[in-house]
Amino acid sequence: MKNRICEVLNIEKPIIQAPMLWVTSAEMVAAVSEAGGLGTYGFNGGYDTKVTSVEETAERMRTQIRKIKKLTNKPFAFNYVLPFDGIDFFGDACLQVAIEEEVMHVVAAGYVTESAVKKLKDYGMKVIARPVNPTIEQAQLAERAGADVIVATGFDEGGSAPMNTLGTMSIVPVIADSVDIPVLAAGGIVDSRGVKASFALGAEGVFVGTAFITSEESPASQITKDAIIKFESEETVTLKTAYGHERCLTTQSVTDYMENQTAELKDNEAIVEKITQTFLDGFIKGRLDKGFISVSAAVSLIKEIKTCKEIVSDLYSGVPVAV
């Protein structure tokens, strides 16, 4: 059976690696693409030091893109954060780098607007739209604007889980029934059972993050990988954020945060600062006393470190689709 996501993105397997903040690198992205999926570069991936400006983030992305191209000649994507309330966190600076480096696949994440999607399409890009809070309205808006693929994210997600607490089993068929473009299922998908279930729900591919954090090629610290393997799903906690939710391992830093939080962060720069520092500390430096480790609800199913090739192969096992 042919697969529309494979056809439109020119890939072999309808498995898209999520562009996780900090937790990607040239090696990881290239390995996923080489395995037949679509690797996606996320902001500041491949680095272990804090950034001082948006421009530095953009130039880091340029360096990693050039490394990816040396490691694979297969398609890969970059992350574009859609502007929110008129604020551009990383978007335009990184978009300009992607244009200059001729990266033609993009995961556009955030609050979808027709103008933002049309801008990306005007550059000739293949657009994977990922509404941070998926709704029928957001999905249909993305489709009208020309998005090639839409991501239906369920509350089973780890990072950037939606405000609405609809699970993956619920939101995927709702979105799939509302649009004609192909849908990617996201949230709690870490093995072939989740992939097969996603297809049964109407998705034509999957959008996977947590499973790749423990990959051999992942830049996450060994401490972090060991913690993900050790923790069970019931040992996670969901934190409310300005844009949705984060499901995290219940480390000392998360416990302290919950006990001492007196008010929600409302300043956007403060939000970016908090997310940037806590994810850098948690994922990359393995500082469980200071950082956060965001994971999906299916973290219990991750029990060993594998290569990206093995992970893609395991996810794809028994799925009846091919180019």
Rank of each mutant, 00 (worst) to 15 (best):
I11P: 05
I15L: 05
V23F: 02
A26V: 04
M28R: 10
A30S: 09
V32I: 05
G36E: 07
G45C: 09
K50M: 15
T52D: 12
T57A: 15
K69V: 01
L71R: 10
T72H: 12
L82Q: 11
P83N: 10
P83L: 09
F84D: 08
D88G: 10
G91Y: 03
L95W: 14
V97E: 13
A98L: 04
V103D: 03
H105Y: 08
V106F: 12
A108G: 10
T113Q: 13
E114H: 07
A116P: 10
K119Q: 09
K119A: 09
V127W: 08
V132M: 15
N133H: 03
P134I: 02
P134G: 07
I136W: 03
Q138E: 15
Q138H: 13
A142M: 08
T153I: 03
G154A: 00
M163K: 12
T168A: 04
I171E: 04
D177M: 08
D180V: 05
K196F: 02
A197W: 07
G205T: 11
S215C: 07
Q222E: 14
I223H: 11
S233F: 01
E234I: 01
E235N: 15
V237L: 00
A242F: 12
Y243R: 13
G244N: 12
E246Y: 06
L249M: 04
D256V: 02
Q261G: 08
T262D: 13
A263W: 06
N268V: 10
I271Y: 05
T276H: 13
F279I: 12
F279L: 13
D281C: 05
G282P: 02
I284M: 10
L288F: 03
K303Y: 01
E304W: 02
I305N: 15
K306V: 06
Y316N: 15
